[in-house]
């Protein structure tokens, strides 16, 4: 799939995953790359950007069998952004779908 295509929507996917609960980088990457064809690395710049913009916060948490994990938590601001972006995406994808279906007939 076209890379430029994915980039914008991946932010939305990452925010959605974090809405379900706090998570760490590897887990987010694993969840996403199991569903969307993409490099694991892609999520890290996204997480970093979201943190810089205040949409997610980070904290360290001990893990049972490895180094402490950096967890990401969706902030109120992030939750707001998620609601807004999701609505925009829904409208946009509906519109695109409509256009593509018109083309078929």
């Amino acid at each position: 799939m076209n890379n430029q295509f994915k980039k914008g929507v991946l932010d939305l996917c990452v925010l959605t995953i974090l809405k379900k609960g706090d998570s760490y980088g590897y887990d987010v990457a694993d969840t996403l790359s199991s569903k969307i064809q993409m490099s694991d690395g892609t999520v890290y710049p996204i997480l970093r950007k979201l943190a810089a913009e205040g949409y997610v916060s980070t904290y360290l948490k001990e893990s049972q069998n490895g180094p402490p994990r950096k967890y990401y938590h969706l902030t109120d601001l992030g939750a707001e952004k998620l609601t807004k972006d999701k609505q925009e995406w829904d409208e946009f994808s509906q519109a695109v779908k409509g256009i593509l279906e018109d083309m078929k007939t």
Binding site: S33, M38, S39, D40, G41, T42, Y44, P45, I46, R48, K49, A52
Partner: peptide
């Protein structure tokens, strides 16, 4: 699985 390090670096730079 992480992908090309230069692409990853470019993504980081894009975001910042």
């Amino acid at each position: 699985m992480l992908g090309d390090p230069s692409e990853l670096a470019a993504d980081y730079k894009d975001g910042m």
